[in-house]
Each structure stands twice: as C-alpha cells, then as structure tokens.
Design a protein around this nucleic acid. Structure first.
Lengths: 235, 235
DNA sequence: CGAGAAATTAACTCGTTAGATAAATACTGT
DNA sequence: ACAGTATTTATCTAACGAGTTAATTTCTCG
C-alpha cells in the first residue's frame, strides 16, 4: 500500500517527438508562411515544449528547411510509384495529369510551401543538396511516352518533355493554389466537387487535344452546368 | 543679411506622400508577404515617417488591402486596353497569351501579392467590394473570340472561356511565380531570355494546337538549345 | 500677417517572439 | 540500485515591431 506505483510525469519518445514536431511545423509553415509561422504554436500543436524544437531540429529556419525537404521527398516517392510505361500514350498522359491534380488536391500544404519558398527566391532550396539530388522521374517518363506516342501515330508532334511537365503542373497548380482568390473573383466555389471534376476534364482535354490533334467530348462540349454560368471574371 | 530666407525643414505633399507610401508598401508586401513585411521598412523606403502610414492610409492590413486593390486596378486597366475583336481568332488567342505572359513578367509583384493573398485564403479580398466589382473583360473577350473561331472554322471546338482563361493564366503564372524553385530543381535559369522565349512559344503552340487541331512549328520542333538539355527534373 | 488646420517629425509603449539557461525527470548499462 | 546521459519541462531575456502620443512645422485663408 505504501508501495504505490511510481507515476511518470512524462515519457521519452525522441523519434515520435521529432515526427510530431515536423508535422506540426508543416501545418504551421503552410498555413502562415515562413515569417508568419510561430514557433510557440508549432510546439503547442506538437504537444511539445518549445525547447524540443531546438533540441531535435534546430532553429526556425532549420525547421522550415527540413519540412520543405520532407515535402519534396514525399512527392518524389509517390511519383516513382506511377507506372506510365505500360499504358498507351494518351492514357499515360491522362494518368499523369490525374496524378498531379490529385496529389496537389490531397497535399495543399505542398503548394503553400512552394509558394513560400518562391517568395524567398528559393533561398533555402539552394542550400539543400538533399533536394537538388532528388530527381523527379516524370521528365524521363514524359519523354518516353511522347516518343512512343509519336512513333505509334497517337501524337502528331514531339514536344519538349520539360515544357510539357511544367505546363501540366501549372494547369493544376494555379487553379488549386489560387482557388481562394479565383473563387472570390468568379463569385463561386472552385473547390466544390463539380468544379473540380470540370477542371480536371478540361485539362486532360486541352493537353490531349494539343498532342493528338483530336478533340475529345469534354473539351468540345459546352456544359450547361459549371463555371460557364459565372460569365464575368478573371485572375 | 539678417533677413536670411527661411529654410524649410520639410514640405507638405500629401498626394505624393500617399503614392510613395503605397509604392513602397507594394514592394515590401510583394517581397516579404504580409507577415514578413515591416512597417518601418515601408516608411523608410517611402522616405516617410512611420506615423505617416497611419495618417494617410491606416494600419498594416489596411495598407496591404489598398496595395492589393491597386494591383487589381492596374491589371484590369491594361486588360481593357487589349483589343482582340478585330484580330482573327488564332491571332487573338496568341495576343492574349502574349499579353498575359508579359504582364506577369513586367509585374512580378502582382504574382507575389496574389500568392500572399491566397496564403491568407483571400481573407482580405473577400472584404473588398472594390475588387469584386472590377470585372475582367477577358472572359467575355475569350467567349467572343472562341465563338468567332468556331464559326470561321479556325477552331474545331467550343471551349469554356473561364477554363481557357484560367489555363492561360496558369501556364504563365506557374512558370514565373515558381521560377526560383524550378530553376534550382532543373539546375538552370528559367528567366534568361532564351528560356523565356522558348516558354512563350510552347504555351502559344500548346493552346493553339488544342484549339485549331493544327500543330505549329514551335510546338513540334524539338529545339537543340533550351530546356531539353536539362533532362532531369520536376516541380 | 496671424490663427487655425493639415501634415509631418520625434520619441515612447507595450505585447510578442525567437531563442537561451537551468533544473528536473526518465532511461540505460553496469 | 546507481551513476551517467538523454530527454523534457519551466522560466527567463533581449530584441523587435506595430501602433500611439505629443510636439513641431508648414500651409491656407480671412
């Protein structure tokens, strides 16, 4: 009875702590940017004492860079999982757009982090040998697919895979990253299901029409529902 | 001699002061975002006493909103100056892309401000009746051009003008707004003249190929110089 | 020219924030 | 069980930054 079991005030869990810190930091940096992020909020949301951030990771900028590197690691890993080789070229391109779109939709923090890093003129990325060595498999995938498409006659013309990659990313990125302002400007919610579906269909149709020379139903059809109703805005 | 001319310590210039404050604020907000911007730096760069910001405009957020509204006003004004009506449809689309591209190139602060506002989930824009009433003429211009193109047979298919507008803006915006990170990732300067020219040609070719069904030289030709050399990166 | 208003400067305040110091607690190996 | 180290908590600090107060100078108009 006098031998009451010792009650621990806290437990050690360095790995878990580190993970919680980085996850909280990711949310904080993506929600508020580098300058707007608050170290105390990160600590609180990680369920940690603020001192832990400095103990396990480093100062605010170190923390930010680690989050950024983690974000690149994650997308690169998923990209590698995408198998375009065995699909016929138009399907492969469609798959690529679909993946990019849905990755961005599922990971809005990634978009925000990229914007923050670009505001900083890529100052941190430049110092990261880690990210610079993480090559995306997409450019080579696209090159292969385009070559196959030209040979098979599916595609009329060769296109620079880097340009095509940037174009596909841009079509997806801009819509999602700027959905808040665009939604205000157009006076409608660009993130609701119908709007998202319509956007994806448009992008696929646009790129495939350019590559194949054949227009698909979705590109040509003027749908009665959707964005067309809001016939009045831009940027 | 005793009647030395009174030497003024400073002169009044409320309008000039206001303009200098807003210009300095635009630079500051676009360079550092809302949270990263420093009121003292704005004052210093405007050649003003900090108190002047509060006297002439208001607090930091008021200042930011006014800058944002000014940026929208400016692009809307230039958009209205673009006359697409008398051009044949493919030329009109090319002109539109060219304008958008060059406007973004000439006004990188606008891109940064939009990113900042989207980070804030368009919180300020939502409160601005001013911006909400500034309708862009582009959507209607595009609708007209597309309709004419379909009638004349230049374009194979009708396309939703809002989607097309977002696509054109996105193709330009993403490349320029993210040029810092993309340049690191691809290991080359995306803003140098050749890269810019190549990008513009690609975008025009992509969109026109999709609309007309005919591929242009620039879309099809695999150029020896340029981005293709950097065959290894993404996002 | 002189009084009152407008514009501007100078200096201060007070909460916030990144980061540091020091002490306490938990764990590990012997 | 205990000594030493790793991990965590509690508390402090020094600078910064947005916004304010109050005094000063310039301008306008009767």
């Amino acid at each position: 009875m006098a031998k009451a079991k010792r009650v621990l005030k806290w437990q050690r869990d360095p790995e878990g702590m580190r993970i919680r810190i980085l996850e909280a930091a990711k949310q904080e940096f993506s929600a508020h940017g580098l300058a707007g992020a608050r170290v105390d909020r990160i600590a609180a949301n990680a369920g940690a004492n603020k001192r832990m951030l400095y103990y396990h990771v480093g100062n605010k900028e170190d923390l930010y860079l680690e989050v950024l590197e983690g974000a690149y690691e994650q997308i690169r890993a998923e990209e590698r999982g995408l198998d375009l080789e065995h699909l016929d070229p138009p399907k492969a391109i469609e798959r690529l757009i679909d993946f990019t779109w849905n990755y961005f939709l599922r990971n809005p923090e990634f978009l925000a982090l990229l914007n923050t890093e670009n505001l900083a003129k890529a100052r941190h990325l430049k110092r990261s040998t880690k990210v610079k060595s993480m090559h995306s498999p997409f450019v080579e995938m696209i090159r292969t697919v385009v070559n196959r498409g030209v040979e098979s006659g599916d595609f009329r013309v060769a296109v620079d895979p880097v340009q095509l990659y940037i174009s596909i990313a841009g079509l997806c990125f801009f819509y999602l990253s700027n959905s808040a302002t665009l939604s205000v400007i157009f006076g409608r919610d660009l993130l609701k299901k119908e709007a998202r579906d319509e956007r994806l269909a448009h992008m696929v149709a646009l790129v495939l029409a350019a590559l194949t020379g054949k227009s698909t139903a979705d590109f040509g059809k003027a749908k009665p529902t959707g964005l067309r109703a809001a016939a009045h805005q831009a940027v």
